[in-house]
């Protein structure tokens, strides 16, 4: 098995890990680094549970080869809170009851974070578009849309 050493920035910390050439970014996060906040739901980039930010852009980490992250910045759900202190987006998710089973939550948070960085005051339609690659089976999306809207108005 051909391996290589991946050097990248993970939640603003330098990280190096020896991985198979064919590994996806999701494989590296979950299986090599045991950063399990990022979820595997479908494996083909359809459900969005594995969404992370790659250089600030929301991507499905199951369809990104790890070597594409060489030298790049990757952000995951684990990087959102500062210690015990939740980010204000996470706080909005609590206030709007936007979490039920929680399996889509990490991906939703990352898609929303990516959106709000590029477009701090999105319209409702832009919010819906930004999370349209993230499937949620519990909430019917409405509380999540409200939480992101709330955050954009803070």
């Amino acid at each position: 098995m051909t391996t290589f050493t991946l050097h990248f920035w993970l939640n603003n910390q330098p990280e190096s890990v020896e991985i198979p050439l064919t590994a996806t970014l999701l494989d590296v996060l979950r299986d090599e680094l045991h950063m399990t906040g990022t979820k595997r739901g479908c494996g083909i980039g359809e459900c969005g549970a594995c969404t992370v930010l790659l250089n600030g852009q929301a991507v499905n980490s199951c369809t990104v080869l790890a070597l594409q992250a060489q030298g790049q910045k990757v952000e995951t759900v684990e990087g959102l809170a500062k210690g015990e202190e939740l980010s204000s987006l996470q706080q909005s998710f609590i206030e709007e009851h936007a979490v039920q089973c929680g399996f889509c939550t990490s991906g939703m948070l990352m898609s929303a974070t990516g959106l709000l960085r590029q477009n701090p005051h999105p319209s409702e339609k832009e919010i819906r578009t930004a999370i349209s690659g993230n499937l949620c089976r519990c909430t019917g999306y409405m509380p999540i849309i409200k939480a992101i809207e709330k955050e954009s108005k803070r």
């Binding site: 759900v77 684990e78 939740l86």
Partner: peptide
């Protein structure tokens, strides 16, 4: 259970 789910 919300905080654990929000932080991964």
């Amino acid at each position: 259970d919300v905080k654990a789910k929000l932080t991964g």
